[in-house]
Amino acid sequence: MNCTHPMTGKGADGMSHKTRNEVIHSFQVNFFAMSLLNAFPWDSLDREIMTTTTSDIIMEILQMTCLHPICLKNPPSLKYRRRFLTELIKRHEMLAAEPLDVLYEALGEVMCAQEEDVCYKTYLLPTGDAVSLAENVAVISQGTTGLVTWEAALYLSEWALENTHLFKNKTVLELGSGIGLTGIVVCRSSSLTKYIFSDCHQTVLQRLKENISNCLTNCDSNSASVCVEELDWENVSDEQLQRIQADTIIAADVVYDPDIIAGLVRLLSRLLNGKVHEEHPDVYIASTVRNPQTYDCFKKELEMAGLRHVVMKDSVAHVFPYNRASSIEMIKIYV
């Protein structure tokens, strides 16, 4: 199963029309990533429904989403599955076909179940492998935003999939790993020497370790040494950085709070100024620019610290579903 978005044909009306298999695949990818319901190709499904009097495509979508083994083991949130099934039933009722009992049974099960604080988002890699991450249902939970996956992490993961050569035989340090998507994708796709996940929030570190264990243990594609470091940007010692000795440093969505920018830039300066490394590491940071003033402040702090940057213009293949309208910028930082 290829997770990249396939090319679609053009209909006589000039609109892009997905094939039946593309529609089903798109539903699966978006469902497991818990995309907003308006991101699903409902119009394409409606066109398929209009050309048949059977429930076959609805049943196939159900089998590839709510009844799929991934969902049974690592389910999206109950609220999300309720909304999804309700909309799927609405589309099915457009058919002049017999009621699909299994569809109503699936909705009945989730209606009776009790919501938990933790759900799973699953991202399908181009190889067909699945990365299932436990994350909190609430965006802000236990005083942190680090228990959910953010858009810049998805972008950085896509970029890493296209630039595996940059990680070959390297020791990679990730700052602010959160629940671990980017690092797990890099470890699953690149021939690393070592990957160091890091964060400073205890609850995030615990969730991170669980996701790493679930996604990387006994993974044939992962031959790298993997570890998790508690890394406080303000208080990290030279001894800890010496022990890490990273060749490549990456981070996603770490530039969001003006109060932490100075500490981040000081750490980057220490990593790049040659005092803790024989050679300057490569540093790549991807950011969703939510507040341009905050992001400009980060760039000014870099300049004041004697650090330069260049904006990475690489185009990346769309592998994961997320809001492409978001302004995401990736930079390489150097001395």
Rank of each mutant, 00 (worst) to 15 (best):
T4C: 05
P6L: 04
A12T: 03
H17W: 14
V23A: 01
V29W: 01
F31Y: 12
W42K: 05
L45T: 01
I49K: 11
S55E: 03
I57Q: 12
Q63M: 09
M64C: 12
T65R: 10
L67N: 10
L78W: 08
F84K: 13
T86L: 03
G108C: 07
G108D: 13
Y120A: 02
D129Q: 12
A134C: 07
I140A: 06
G143N: 09
G146Y: 02
E151T: 06
L154Y: 06
N163V: 00
T164Q: 09
F167W: 07
N169C: 02
L173G: 04
I184T: 07
I196G: 01
F197E: 13
F197V: 02
F197H: 10
D220N: 10
N222R: 08
N235G: 04
R243A: 10
Q245E: 09
A252Y: 04
A252Q: 13
P258S: 13
L267Y: 04
R270K: 15
V276H: 07
H280N: 14
A286V: 00
Q293F: 02
T294D: 03
D296E: 14
K299D: 01
K300N: 15
L302C: 12
R308W: 04
H318E: 14
Y322L: 04
S326L: 14
I328Y: 03
M330G: 08
Y334I: 00
